[in-house]
Design a protein around this nucleic acid. Structure first.
Lengths: 343, 343
DNA sequence: TTGAAAGCGCTAACAG
DNA sequence: CTGTTAGCGCTTTCAA
């Protein structure tokens, strides 16, 4: 049941000109009707609408925006992994704010690949997104410099390198320091660190916070219990088992993000006297599992970043600023097990 | 440091024409250089590129696509909630396939609102997405009928109403039936059902599967233990507590999706002899928590739907088809607690 | 109330 | 190797 204009099984989409011809009016009149503009007689309007429906016409917003000079209403969000709840919560927070301003979120993921990051950014800019929210994977963002004063760009979660733009971060170093101090207070001295890729700024900062706390407590040889660069649950589980097999074994673990916490938990299943555990990032069901975390609000980060974007689009040209969100320890049991009680 | 064309704090973006003028060549030559086409002398090319960089030029893909008649390279995905792992896993599965075909995923969420669904669909179509992946919230999709033969549309998770298009579903009824039968086999007769909005087709089917199993087992008055329409964890927790307070209390629970399972788990925390539990949908850490589920693969659903889209775009005009993905019971302990052992 | 002509930024077709 | 002309689908003058 293809229309007469079917080409290779695909019907050609009618243009406004065809609708106008079908209705026996000029292009402009058809345009007026379909855009709800005044000064058209009811009869004419009805005829145009009838023709549009009959042909399956749908306005081409792209062409409209090109002519009217209006930019698109979409805002790009670049994250590393769509399926990581941490990023999808950022996306949700941002989407709510943007939608309230009539903007649409376009999400793309990089799989933590800096080449992908750059090409996605370029592509979105060529598509003329109004603004860009970026959780960077790359290590140099100077290529975004020419956008200054053109397209508002806000970085989230990780700071930009060689680029000055609005940024929303979490206080990683202080958060990690507090989380580890929490374990030290329970009497732990041998504390294992299970971390993600150390090329990520967030991870380096959390590692630094870990070191801060250990050094402040005068613990020696804490480096022995550091396992970094596990970017998925399986690797984190392996690192955890590896730590538990050390002699003497650590009595506590600090996991540096949600993925590593999940991996560690997997490795700890069935262990009779599991080490104490504090994880960076809160996660769903952490309360049911009784896992103490260094929590913060990804939605909040998305919300604030989106609000910056909206402000910039509304003409705010104040100097770029960096917002650092606080963390807080949420004690749920796993982080309060005393060192004396482990093994 | 705005450029000379700054308007309201925003620099105007240079056009190809301006680049050409700056480089002292024609429009077409500039176009050739910036598109990497042959037959341009190195010297000219260098001059054009220099001008482009100096002006901060970025090709306008929208205009290019308009002129070349090429449709965009984006595919729209409409889901109800970006932050529900179930949907983000669908998105990830789809994105991988699409990217491999040079297509970009554009995600938008509806918050389970059918008005939102329709307006997002219309908007994406006006933006000329190449195809549409829809997890519907609405109850009538006839408005998509004119797209037949124009834009490939694939429905996921829930079937379309009054519309014939490719669809990828999960075998909800059989899955629920099997999950409940699993509980019945462990001797349970009083089984509580904690369900999501019953206007959702998936929920009605899972409810039907629940009823199938109960009736086949000759259980009477099972309706007493049915609590539907909880769409968030808090409500599901309340329904669960309500069920546990019934006299006589159910010895087992069947939760009809990931959100309700999480809510139930929250309500069950600290209960000395918790009821047996089987949940529909697998979820992260279910293994650590020892929760028996009726599992299936959301990524797979996204992948298959995206593959249908790609096939359609490549000219496949075979009749539309519905793929129903199987589920399987993953026993992890919570669903194997015998009725005799509860209270 | 309606319409004709021009042009948004770009590429295709055809000259030079 | 380079340039000129036309036109994608639409809106914006400006005129009737």
């Amino acid at each position: 049941m293809e229309g007469p204009d079917a080409v290779g099984g695909r019907a050609a989409r009618p243009t406004l000109r065809q609708v106008a011809a079908e209705a026996g009016v000029s292009l402009k009149t058809a345009s007026r009707v379909l855009n709800g503009h005044p000064h058209v007689s009811d009869a004419t309007a009805a005829r145009v609408r009838g023709a549009a429906d009959a042909l399956g016409f749908r306005l081409n917003r792209i062409a409209r925006e090109l002519r009217s000079g209006a930019t698109s209403t979409s805002v790009g969000l670049i994250i590393s992994d769509l399926a990581n709840p941490f990023y999808s919560r950022i996306a949700r927070g941002a989407e709510r704010v943007l939608r309230a301003s009539g903007l649409q979120l376009v999400t793309a993921s990089t799989d933590e690949d800096s080449t992908q990051e750059r090409s996605l950014v370029e592509e979105l800019l060529e598509r003329r997104v109004r603004a860009l929210l970026v959780v960077p994977s790359g290590t140099d963002h100077a290529y975004l410099e020419p956008e200054h004063g053109r397209t508002p760009v806000v970085f989230l979660d990780r700071p930009p390198v060689r680029l000055a733009v609005d940024t929303v971060l979490v206080d990683n170093r202080a958060g990690a320091r507090a989380g580890v101090a929490h374990l030290l207070r329970a009497g732990h001295r041998r504390i294992g660190f299970v971390g993600d890729l150390s090329r990520l700024a967030t991870q380096r900062e959390r590692m630094a916070g870990f070191a801060d706390a250990m050094q402040a407590a005068g613990v020696l040889q804490w480096e022995r219990y550091v396992r970094a660069d596990s970017h998925d649950q399986a690797t984190a589980a392996r690192s955890t088992r590896d730590l538990l097999a050390t002699d003497p074994a650590p009595t506590a673990l600090f996991t540096s993000n949600n993925v590593n916490t999940a991996g560690a938990l997997r490795a700890l299943t069935g262990v009779p006297t599991p080490p104490a555990l504090v994880g960076f990032d809160d996660f769903d069901l952490a309360d049911v599992l009784g896992i103490t975390v260094v929590g913060h609000e990804p939605e909040e980060m998305g919300r604030i970043a989106a609000e910056r974007v909206v402000a910039r689009l509304n003409g705010d040209d104040s100097p770029h600023r960096t917002v650092v969100l606080p963390t807080r320890i949420i004690p749920r049991g796993s982080g309060e097990r005393a060192a004396a009680d482990i093994r």
